[in-house]
């Protein structure tokens, strides 16, 4: 599924304008389905994933989060103050609920590399660039290096990183598809696709792909959130002096 998605639908589905409309149609259906989910069945298991979204200023990170979480696009949307992340909870399968924390760059922290605090314990990463801004594409490699230098999964491997080429609805593109294809392979991204936060294109699909990868990884026992090396960390109980009984 991984492969076919990456190379099949991922690349081809939004090749030309004609496909765009079709895609848009599909998106509408998605949201319709979303709106009438009522009393969800009993939650069997719930997984929490932290996903960080980085990339140059104005490539559309906040709009992407907004589109994914709220299903809307506002031209004048501005980051909310005092909030670290947007949260999306959804049912993945009969027995699996996903809580997805989407850490936006906080709008303002955009003239610099990120603090480690932002990257810490992330399970997945989206690096976004603007198809109409070549510079933002070239900078994705810097962002990738920044992520890889500041966080990793407990087993030491880099966190899964997806490359998103946003603003595919605009005509003035400056980055060639073949170039991106070569680039993502060379730089160990898990996949890439073109998206449009404005039109809602490939927003849900790309996120679904990332969640799949993260689920696989957490299933492999490299679940970053439950302390991969938990046994080595201090347990509060055992750390309490056992002698408290003689406190008389």
């Amino acid at each position: 599924m991984n492969n076919s998605w990456k190379q099949g639908s991922f690349l081809l589905s939004i090749d030309r304008d004609s496909d765009l409309e079709e895609e848009e149609e599909e998106e509408k259906v998605w949201y319709a389905k979303e709106s009438f989910v009522e009393d969800p069945p009993k939650i069997m298991s719930e997984k929490l994933f932290k996903v960080i979204i980085i990339g140059d200023p104005t490539v559309g990170k906040t709009s992407f989060v907004q589109r994914y979480v709220q299903g809307s696009f506002k031209r004048d949307y501005k980051g909310t103050v005092g909030v670290d992340f947007a949260l999306k909870v959804f049912k993945w399968s009969e027995s699996q609920t996903i809580r997805l924390q989407l850490w936006d760059i906080a709008g303002q922290e955009r003239f610099t590399w990120m603090t480690r605090v932002y990257y810490k314990d992330a399970h997945g990463c989206i690096i976004m660039f603007d198809l109409t801004n070549r510079n933002s594409f070239q900078n994705t490699i810097k962002w990738k290096k920044d992520v890889d230098s500041k966080c990793m999964l407990p087993d030491g491997s880099p966190i899964p990183c997806m490359l998103l080429a946003n603003k595919c609805d605009l005509s003035s593109r400056q980055v060639d598809q073949m170039e991106i294809e070569t680039f993502y392979k060379e730089n160990n991204f898990i996949g890439w696709t073109e998206t449009s936060a404005k039109e809602g294109l490939m927003v849900n699909d790309s996120m679904r792909f990332l969640v799949e990868v993260m689920l696989r990884q957490s299933g492999n026992g490299t679940n970053g959130f439950s302390n991969g090396n938990g046994t080595d960390r201090l347990h509060l109980k055992s750390a309490v002096p056992t002698s408290s009984s003689c406190s008389c």
Binding site: W30, K33, E34, V37, P40, V69, Q70, G71, L87, K88, V89, F90, K91, W92, S93, E94, N204, R208, V211
Partner: peptide, 8 residues
Amino acid sequence: SSDKMTSE
């Protein structure tokens, strides 16, 4: 069934 989504 992942397309059944609730958004929080």
